[in-house]
Design a binder for these strands. Structure first.
Lengths: 233, 233
DNA sequence: TGTATATACATGTATAGACATCTAAAATCG
DNA sequence: CGATTTTAGATGTCTATACATGTATATACA
């Protein structure tokens, strides 16, 4: 089975909503109607409607039916793109300094995050990205050699780790968390900030189809950086 | 049937996670084990685990099992959701304290952000939202009276400002920025954190079709909160 | 006329079972 | 011993069915 049937039903409904075939407030087919139309069991049709309800695309009411929601929740979140394109998009000059580029062994924590065994060989890099010469991002990254075999041979002043990795194997998904922290003396010194200054810390895991490619910790000085986003309902 | 059985199973698991009975990274019982333990079918046990996975409390991997998430990402950041539903969805108790609720005049900065003239009459509220009694969000909000005429008459311990406003006029879009800051003594005192502790500060402007409805500043203690999200390429 | 009651139909909860897919560890083979 | 295959167990998808609960409408009764 390539794609689940409930996904096909969801796609079908979304298409009709997007093309204004079904407008806000319209009733969409009931679970039983969809089940008959797609020749699936009611539970499968139900799952499609239910997930669309959780996504805010439909509003479901017991005894009444499922209706197209009038306000749609946003689909894209904070725009977080490669730091170099980000800087260049602002019309400024991007430069990178390679602080570390080495082969090492995974400690317990890193191994768990990468889905490897403790002590497994992994690649490690630390870079400082600057905007017009002013430090803007401290990038600490671990890479699964399986998905980036030539990682250590790259020149990361010319191309960023993230763009190298995405060129090797297409990235399928990522999860990330954002938190506010204060940095230690070493990182603070590199970023040229005082020790009390709060920073944004972004922890991201990136996957390709066959597994976890890399984990990255990105630190931005709070005084110079803001993450901006746009939401559409 | 008073409460659904899958809810009881969810509560049971949440309790064990909260009391550190099961710690981050621990494996929780499998679908079959839970089904046997609670004398329910596998599909019912599955629903409990699945919903906890969607809430970010568990991480489920096919072939491996379900594990307690290490840092609980708060929201999917994919939708703007009120803090109270967010907290309740995680099986915890939400409470709010109204620190300020007043009519005032817009200063220059606020007027610009709201698209009003300086000195225009606006509504202002300051709330503290808590999860199980622990301060989690400091909410400082200005509202354009045009889009929320009865704002000052609301009881914000029962309903949140955001849900009141979205009920009045459908919201069409929002923009926001996230930064890391240290808070002043007043806010720090309310949030019960030390002055050196970094916080996440979220500045958000929300529109309806006819104009800017509200601007909000949301502050989360860095030690208790992470923003989490998923990206799909 | 107005109020109950019955009915149809929608979603909500739950069961029992089948097969698919993925992972890690055990067993087997060279 | 190392590489390959098998196997056990976990989640993922799907079916068919049953009953519970909420809503609106039609019907019967006072």
């Amino acid at each position: 089975m390539t794609i689940p049937r409930y996904t096909a039903i969801k796609d079908h409904i979304i298409r009709r909503v997007d093309t204004a075939h079904w407008k806000a407030g319209d009733r969409v087919p009931s679970e039983n109607e969809l089940a008959a139309e797609f020749s699936v069991s009611r539970m499968t049709a139900r799952r499609a409607l239910q997930e669309l309800g959780e996504q805010g695309i439909l509003v479901r009411t017991q005894g009444l039916g499922s209706f197209v929601a009038d306000a749609r929740p946003m689909s894209s979140m904070l725009k977080i793109q490669s730091i170099d394109t980000e800087i260049r998009a602002r019309g400024r000059e991007h430069s990178a300094e390679v602080l570390t580029l080495e082969q090492t062994e995974a400690d317990h924590n890193t191994a768990v995050l990468l889905g490897l065994d403790q002590g497994a060989v992994i690649y490690h890099s630390v870079l400082l990205h600057s905007e017009n010469g002013q430090p803007l991002q401290y990038e600490d990254r671990y890479v699964n050699p399986k998905f980036g075999p030539d990682y250590l041979a790259q020149n990361f002043t010319a191309t960023t780790p993230s763009s190298y990795l995405s060129a090797i194997s297409p990235l399928t998904k990522a999860d990330q968390t954002i938190e506010a922290v204060c940095v230690n003396a070493e990182v603070g010194n590199v970023l040229q900030i005082s020790l009390n200054e709060p920073c944004l810390k972004l922890n991201r895991r990136t996957w390709c189809k066959r597994g976890i490619v890399t984990i990255a910790t990105l630190i931005y000085p709070g005084s110079r950086f803001r993450l901006g986003g746009h939401l559409n309902f």
